[in-house]
Design a binder for these strands. Structure first.
Length: 583
DNA sequence: GCCGTTTTCGGCCCGACTGTTTTCAGTCG
């Protein structure tokens, strides 16, 4: 999969073109191409040379040729030419907050600054402040920016961002008596798997209150630094050690109630989704901004998001779908899929007890599952090869199955399936013999070791497991840990085709560090008719409550409840499992 | 460079904040 690499080339070309001052519409096009490539579930290097590549939205003849060229030669001439026009480390300067292409071009041309060390020297010897358009304050801000860059952390996991946002909102509610409404926005609301900064939106109908909210925000506990603060908007760097050790940028915007919907829509993004909406507005001779949808001076919509979409002639688009991945077109035709919701989930088919590496008893898990309103759960302790996870040998497993069946008899309002998360061994065989697997109500096959092998080997391994008639589902298919462990190299086309052929479900593991399958693969899988299961893989009762992250990932992949096995009644799952029939 | 139920040529989203400015450019989201 070379999409990351190819997309990065287009972004780098755009960066260089900005510095040397080329047409910015062309630059935007390159950035869009980069985004389309990054979002594409198919390996674009496999689409190269075929018409399919040119049919991707935003990719025209010229971009397709560059992609073909990369696949054939490993380089793109246009890219190489651009690289020759700038010093090799110049692009590092763009990473400094507050320093953009115009500034970089100025210091390079006028002061021969070619990298961050050069810039630091220009700040130190005060030659920077002599430059037209620069000054002492700008120099100071850049010095600060360089320091920040040296200590900068990357994006944080969604669940930490949720924790931090809740901490900030909690403090604001406590400190501001007149605070009526405050909402989460940005990538946090869209439930991207990682979050760069946290966006909040507050409502205030008088300017006094708006100022008070902004000012209070800059003074709450945990603020490390105020980046900017105006009348209606402020940005801070914030940390809360109760959530995580990272320092995160939090942006707050305050708008009047007549604009709350438009502002919430705007600050939820994505940027590209918003651009699409504004283009539609322009075509209708309207104007869309964070204050509302306007015809001339007249506000047509703004109080609610629903109004804004409606007046634009669009069906309401759920936040998790707002990525400009085709949802706007479907909303225009009123053909959006009704994506799965938390309330559709009827059970959780992946969790662990102390029999292997879980922390809560069977009874405690059942109690929590009942509280969550589930009709069924599957107990899926590890198999014998997972020694670190205290996996069960056959003898222990058989006893465990008995215990679960006895327990199941005690409940008439929930069904407990005796199951197992069985290791897929290196050669693709299963960690228990078939006659043992046959005794389980449900079987998840998972890869837990040897994830670093070559693609053909990993793919063949998983597909062999799928071909075992007792395996119902592949758990966390790629094995990735976001930000920590790379996904296993899988030919996702082949895995999806095998899932259809062998009638095996794929898991959407809801754990915030996994989210595996991820959104674009979810979409690819359901397009080909694969059934998915959203599971928490809980190791304690708190883990059972992380289902929402899996649901959000399913929504981001446009899955409806009919795509998700554990949105169906247990009888339907049993029939699906045994007969291989349709749901 | 891409795209088209107003266009195959002429468009391509919008506003807050900051700093260096006598009216605005750059950056960010």
């Amino acid at each position: 999969m070379r999409n990351q690499q190819i997309g990065d080339i287009f972004n780098e070309m755009a960066d260089i073109m900005e510095i040397i001052g080329e047409d910015h519409f062309r630059i935007n096009t390159y950035r869009k191409v980069a985004r389309v490539i990054h979002d594409c579930p198919q390996d674009v290097s496999e689409l190269a040379g075929r018409e399919e590549l040119r049919s991707l939205p935003g990719i025209g003849e010229s971009s397709a040729k560059k992609i073909d060229e990369f696949v054939q030669h490993g380089t793109v001439q246009a890219h190489e030419k651009l690289l020759k026009k700038i010093p090799p480390k110049l692009l590092d300067l763009l990473k400094i907050p507050g320093f953009g292409p115009k500034g970089v071009a100025a210091v390079w041309k006028k002061l021969n600054v070619e990298n961050i060390a050069d810039l630091q020297r220009a700040i130190d010897d005060q030659s920077l402040e002599e430059l037209p358009g620069f000054g002492a304050k700008k120099a100071e801000a850049l010095a600060h920016g360089i320091k920040f860059l040296e200590s900068a952390q990357g994006r944080i996991l969604l669940i930490y961002a949720v924790g931090i946002a809740e901490a900030v909102v909690g403090q604001l509610r406590q400190r501001i008596a007149g605070l009526k409404r405050i909402e989460l926005a940005g990538s946090l609301r869209r439930c991207r798997e990682t979050i760069g900064d946290i966006d909040l939106l507050a409502e205030a109908d008088d300017e006094e209150l708006a100022r008070h909210i902004v000012e209070t925000f800059t003074r709450i506990d945990g603020v490390q630094e105020v980046i900017l603060a105006g009348e209606t908007k402020a940005s801070v760097r914030f940390t809360d050690p109760n959530v995580c050790s990272d320092v995160v940028q939090v942006d707050l915007r305050v708008v009047p109630s007549k604009s709350t919907g438009a502002a919430w829509q705007y600050f939820t993004g994505s940027k590209y989704h918003n651009v699409r909406l504004r283009e539609i507005a322009v075509k209708k001779k309207f104007k869309l901004n964070e204050y509302g949808l306007f015809r001339g001076e007249k506000q047509l919509a703004g109080k609610t998001e629903q109004d804004v979409y409606k007046k634009l002639g669009l069906a309401y688009i759920p936040p998790t779908m707002r990525e400009d991945r085709g949802e706007v077109e479907l909303a225009q035709k009123n053909k959006l899929p009704a994506v799965v919701e938390q309330k559709d989930i009827r059970g959780d088919l992946h969790m662990h007890t102390p029999a292997s590496d879980g922390r809560n008893t069977l009874e405690e898990l059942v109690a929590m599952a009942k509280m969550l309103g589930y009709q069924y759960i599957a107990i899926t302790d590890h198999s014998q090869s997972s020694a670190i996870a205290n996996g069960l040998d056959i003898e222990r497993l058989l006893k465990h199955i008995k215990k679960i069946k006895v327990l199941n008899e005690q409940y008439d309002d929930i069904t407990i399936l005796a199951s197992s998360e069985v290791d897929i061994l290196m050669d693709g065989s299963m960690d228990y013999p078939d006659e043992v697997l046959a005794q389980l109500d449900f079987v998840i096959g998972s890869v837990h070791s040897g994830l670093t092998g070559p693609e053909e080997k990993c793919t063949a391994r998983v597909i062999r497991a799928m071909k075992n008639p007792y395996v119902n589902c592949i758990g966390h298919p790629t094995g990735r840990l976001i930000g920590t462990r790379e996904p296993m190299k899988l030919d996702m086309n082949a895995v999806i085709a095998a899932a259809v052929e062998t009638h095996t479900a794929l898991e959407i593991n809801a754990h915030p560090q996994r989210l595996d399958l991820k959104d674009i693969h979810v979409r690819q899988a359901i397009e080909d008719g694969v059934k998915l299961i959203i599971n928490t893989d809980a190791h304690d009762v708190a883990g059972l409550q992380l289902m929402r992250y899996g649901v959000a990932t399913a929504q981001r992949g446009w899955a409806t409840s009919s795509d998700i096995l554990n949105c169906q009644p247990l009888d339907a799952i049993r029939a699906w499992r045994v007969e291989g029939g349709e749901l």
